[in-house]
């Protein structure tokens, strides 16, 4: 087998690669009984005394490096901070490994670093160590930024992506499909006369406000594979089903337009500034209003609830119910 693009697409194909080649060949995968590699959660943890250290690492490549609504710098901080945040931990610090192509414009690099710094300031995290490498022309396309985030949480208060309980409500912090659609149409040069913008942003504030209410059971950020993938993952790992009201999922008009012209499902493309939060039913409304007061959570919605079933079901006011699947790889026509 050779590695194909679908192996990195966040779907089932990638899951198989991870379990068959990576997990199988690593022996030490957990420290002090914390969250480990096998858990395939957004991050890992190391229990130490009364605290747990939460870690997460992410290699960022994006084409193009600068896109409407952000750039690779912003993405590489927000992406990692968000993975720490959805574990319920306050992000503290970032490490920054950069691999840069020979001939890369220094001005661009400066812009990227500044934009990393801006997100760090907004979230109150520091970049405390880093590494810089340069590779020859032709060996690397532009650059890769690998960031590792470190956060802390009181022992026992960590939030997993596998602990939804039947009856919980599901909150989605805002519109979906923005990042994927913006990037795609910008990259392919479709030149929509719209204000399609990536949603890349740190979501710690949303998470912090939600945690303060006390009813959060589980969290996940719907990045690669989009909402469809994240909902399926969080449901499967929790051993539950979800019933989602499709009309409640926020979608921006330009995202709908692009998806209906290109035939791309907005639920299957990446988001970089959103979070899915499972909340105890009784505290759902309170949590929602707290989230709506935050900078990136104004459009948040309760989109559904946790069921005993084992599928993610979308319900529309007109079309009845359908199963929302996790994307596998490239879509194949199926309508006769």
């Amino acid at each position: 087998m050779k590695i194909g693009m679908s192996h990195g697409a966040g779907g089932e194909v990638m899951q198989n690669l991870i379990s068959d080649i990576i997990l199988k060949n690593i022996k030490n995968k957990r420290v002090n009984g914390g969250v480990g590699l096998d858990d395939l959660d957004d991050g890992a943890s190391i229990p130490l005394g009364d605290l747990e250290i939460v870690l997460s690492t992410d290699g960022h490549t994006v084409d193009p490096l600068f896109f409407p609504g952000g750039d690779i710098g912003k993405l590489s901080i927000a992406g990692t901070v968000n993975d720490i945040a959805v574990m319920g931990a306050k992000p503290l610090a970032i490490t920054n490994g950069m691999v840069i192509r020979e001939g890369f414009p220094a001005d661009d690099l400066e812009t990227i670093v500044k934009s990393m710094d801006a997100v760090c300031q907004e979230t109150g995290v520091s970049i405390i160590t880093g590494d810089t490498k340069v590779m020859e022309q032709g060996k690397l396309d532009e650059m890769i930024i690998t960031t590792t985030g470190i956060g802390v949480v009181n022992k026992g208060e960590i939030k997993r992506d596998s602990s939804l309980k039947v009856g919980d409500k599901i909150i989605l912090s805002g519109s979906v499909g923005d990042h994927g659609m913006a990037l795609m149409s910008y990259r392919e040069g479709f030149g929509f006369d719209t204000d399609l913008q990536s949603d890349v942003a740190p979501i710690w504030e949303i998470v912090e406000k939600a945690l303060a209410i006390g009813g959060v059971t589980s969290m996940k950020d719907p990045t690669r594979g989009g909402l469809a993938n994240a909902l399926n993952e969080i449901a499967n790992k929790s051993g539950v089903g979800l019933l989602v009201e499709e009309d409640k999922i926020p979608l921006k008009e330009p995202v709908i337009a692009v998806s209906e012209m290109l035939g791309i499902d907005p639920y299957e493309v990446a988001n970089e500034g959103k979070v899915i939060i499972g909340v105890e039913k009784e505290l759902a409304d309170e949590t929602l209003s707290a989230i709506r007061k935050t900078r990136y959570g104004a459009q948040a919605q309760i989109i559904g609830e946790v069921t005993e079933d084992n599928h993610v079901i979308l319900e529309t006011s007109l079309g009845g119910k359908r199963i929302l699947e996790a994307p596998i790889a490239d879509p194949v026509p199926r309508v006769c």
Binding site: E188, G189, F190, F192, D193, A257, E260, M261, L262, G263, I264, P331
Partner: peptide, 18 residues
């Protein structure tokens, strides 16, 4: 979506996108 959609379709075909 009328003419804009035809423009996009043309580009989609040119670029073999989806």
């Amino acid at each position: 979506r009328g003419k804009p959609e035809i423009d996009i379709l043309k580009q989609q075909l040119d670029r073999e996108f989806n």
